[in-house]
Design a protein around this nucleic acid. Sequence first.
DNA 1: CGGTTATGGTCAT
DNA 2: TGACCCTAACCGC
Length: 264
Amino acid sequence: MPEGHVIHGLARRLNKEFGHTRPEVSSPQGRFAQEAQLLSHTEFVRAEAVGKHLFLHFEHERIVWIHLGLIGTMQFGNPEKGQVRLLIRNHSHDVALRGPQWCRLISPADLKEIVRIQGADPLAPDPARVQEVLAKVQHSKREVADVLMDQKLFAGVGNIYRAEVLFRLEINPFVPSNQLEQWPQIFTDLEDLMAVGVARGRIDTVRPEHEPQAMGREPRKDDHGGEVYVYRREGLPCYVCGTPIMKKEYKGRNLFWCPTCQSG
DNA sequence: CGGTTATGGTCAT
DNA sequence: TGACCCTAACCGC
């Protein structure tokens, strides 16, 4: 489930439920047992989200680096089910990490290096970093669809937000990045969309006039739970022009777009 | 109930 | 290029 909005949402909730407490930390599955034992009953200082990376700061400068990858989940109040890599529990709350791509104990120096190579995060935009990235993409010959998924440029943006922001701004995914003049608008729209994603816990990208109610159609049922224009809608009519939505495997990921609205 | 697929990204080969 | 992580929703039988 995890694009950047999920990770930022997790960080907020972790801070609320575990911040400045001394929770019990364990690894029922065993693969993080040694580290968990070291952390258990020490102070959970804060959680921090950077793009799709999640960092748990404990006292003594001990940091847990979590990346959910494709199949990882972090669930509150459901500690019994499945293989739990990391379980954090205090007097009132518990959270279970399952199937993460990584869960490692790192040093502040490691953290600094990981953060250094991340791009601009629409959910925590640093103005200098944003300008740096915008300057970079304005000179890149790579295709827009390729650039947008590069975490070293746009941290936290995933396959759904890529497809949706390009549709919303009527941008052809295959245009060379250096020929595009709308990069600032892309970043601004991502800021808006992803903030909505954190607030609602799902990805909604359709404008009011294309919402199910306004168009007299049923709300969408899909894994990510939200209303979108093109993501996983291949062959279905575009909500704006009626043209069937296209799908193509592009650099190992599925890319969706409307060939009419995004003919660019 | 088994097979497929996926919102990811590094590391091994 | 593929393995890995081994979840979880969905689909067809």
